[in-house]
Write a protein that binds this DNA or RNA. Structure first.
Length: 490
RNA sequence: GGCGGCGUAGCCAAGUGGCUAAGGCAGUGGUCUGCAAAACCAUUAUUCAGCGGUUCGACUCCGCUCGCCGCCUCCA
């Protein structure tokens, strides 16, 4: 059983290969830090968080590097607007990013380099490229000679001629060739600068990742990840720089995740159709966002909508309700003599949970399928729980308890079921209750009155009370141990 | 225009050529209930955008057509 991953470079799903046995070196392009993060950024961070957790669960050692781009045109422009330095602005939004990540329960990568802390490393690579005749200085800028790298286009599957034909590339007078891209930008007055052999300036975007990945992971490493929109030009250019400078293969496997869309359009700042992570977390529990993100495989587009979030809410609650039902079972209630309720088929199904989960996740981290397997297992458990006798067989109790702990362990890879189930459901109810602003004492009084009516078989008054409460979104459930109430979801 | 991807039930979504086309939401019928609700059970695609082809056999591979999305400029 091997983990198979879709590799953008080959266009195929292939078995995971690592340079060093059992050790995955992973580099992921992080954010450009100049604003609050939106759900698309959350998807990226969550996807790789899940991948790293799964690899570790499968006993790989993982070295996970994710950078911050903290110098860039947009940062400079925004800082100017806000009357602060680029560094202050970038640092501020890195702090905000961490607040979001922490709320989402996303682990920190092992190494989180900032671009501006690695200027010497970038200058070094640029120097190497110039020495090899793969880059040239023009004015105060330095450009990469795309024609010097024969493999240019191998990741994004395009050839230079086609791209040259595209009219959308602005021709810069300084460039020898419109396709050449910038490695070092001479600075304009008032911009942050660093000294270099080519004068004061700042690095281009692509060189950052070549420099930082080489420093922390070496000239060749196992997996490089990012959003699909980074394939071209960013990752293509990284390959050109790194392989050009190092004369070694850059990355074995390229992983690219799909976008979050709204009404089937890519969420982006320019379209103004984005929602920030904190927008979402103000109305949804972080695990609901996680459940939603993982409800489709990471490479597919994921359309955000209220109804999709409601679906995710219901799904997550369904899992928690099963966990709560098992949690409240007294582990010592079991009767050693009682006849077991679970059939062999059911036992087999419950017992197969972990293996089925692994099969799904081995198949390019198919979290959607994995969630389906959770539900399938929960269905079997619920069916048996619903007919559990008051003195159940000890073997049944043990199986339920084991299943719950396995389910929690596996769900944790997606960051789900981390909260105590009973607490989660109680908080959910409280939150709904807060929203409708109703007096709990009043509810209990009415329930008591209705209880009396029911004893007296005064059905009309009893039903009237129930309808009154329902009008206020309070749902009554008559069970063997009395009447319970809950807040109905709209 | 070039390149990449997608099109599976009312909606979301798995499916690594051959086993009953997972699972969730919604719907319908039932058990339970004074009636309900919740829960549980059952049921919901002779068919996988369309048309051809390869194959003993295709949702799965190939070709074409239609529709949608993305990249080709910064972008997760």
């Amino acid at each position: 059983m091997t983990i198979r991953i879709y590799n953008t470079l080959s266009g195929k799903r292939e078995p995971l290969k690592t340079l060093k046995s059992g050790h995955v070196k992973l580099y992921v392009c992080g954010i450009t830090s100049y604003d609050y993060c939106h759900i698309g950024h959350a998807r990226s961070a969550l996807a790789f968080d899940m991948i790293v957790r799964y690899l570790r669960y499968r006993d790989y050692k993982v070295t996970y590097v994710r950078n911050f781009t903290d110098i860039d045109d947009k940062i400079i422009a925004r800082a100017r607007q806000q009357n602060c330095s680029s560094d202050e602005l970038a640092s501020r939004f890195i702090d905000e990013f961490y607040l979001d990540m922490d709320k989402l329960g996303i682990d920190r990568p092992d190494i989180e380099p900032r671009a501006t802390d690695h200027i010497p490393e970038m200058i070094e690579i640029i120097t190497e490229l110039i020495d090899k005749g793969m880059a040239y200085q023009a004015g105060n800028d330095v450009y990469y000679i795309v024609d010097s790298f024969p493999d240019y286009g191998k990741l994004s599957r395009r050839n230079i001629e086609d791209m040259r034909a595209g009219a959308r590339i602005a021709v810069n007078e300084q460039k020898h060739n419109p396709m050449d891209f910038v490695l070092w930008k001479g600075s304009k007055p008032g911009e942050p600068t660093w000294e270099s052999p080519w004068g004061a300036g700042r690095p281009g975007w692509h060189i950052e990742c070549s420099a930082m990945s080489r420093k922390y992971l070496g000239t060749t490493f196992d997996i490089h990840g990012g959003g699909k929109d980074l394939i071209f030009p960013h990752h293509e250019n990284e390959i050109a720089q790194s392989e050009g400078a190092n004369d070694k293969p850059f990355v074995t496997t390229w992983i690219h995740h799909g976008f979050v869309t709204i009404r089937d359009e890519k969420m982006s700042k320019s379209l103004g159709n984005f929602l920030t992570i904190r927008d979402i977390l103000s109305s949804y529990h972080p695990e609901i966002l996680r459940f939603f993100i993982f409800s489709t495989q990471y490479r597919n587009p994921l359309d955000f909508s209220e109804s999709a979030m409601k679906n995710a809410t219901l799904g997550l609650e369904k899992l928690y309700e099963c966990m709560a039902a098992i949690d409240v079972l007294d582990p010592d209630i079991g009767d050693e003599q009682a006849k077991a309720l679970l059939t062999d088929v059911d036992k087999q199904k419950i017992g197969a949970l972990e293996e089925r989960f692994q099969n799904a996740m081995d198949n390019d981290f198919n979290t959607a399928q994995a969630q389906g397997i959770f539900f399938d297992t929960v269905k079997t458990i619920n069916r048996n729980l619903s007919i559990l006798s008051s003195s159940p067989a000890q073997s049944d109790i043990d199986i339920f308890k084991n299943a719950a702990s396995t389910l929690k362990k596996l769900a944790d890879i997606m960051g789900l079921l981390r909260v105590d189930a009973v607490t989660f459901l109680a908080e959910k109810n409280q939150k709904l209750l807060d929203k409708i602003n109703i007096d709990e004492k009043m509810i209990n009084l009415l329930i008591a009155e209705r209880e009396q009516c029911r004893i007296e078989k005064n059905w009309s008054r009893s039903d009237q009370i129930r309808d009154e409460l329902l009008a206020k979104n309070i749902e009554l459930k008559d069970g063997p141990s009395g009447t319970e109430w809950s807040v109905k979801r709209n």
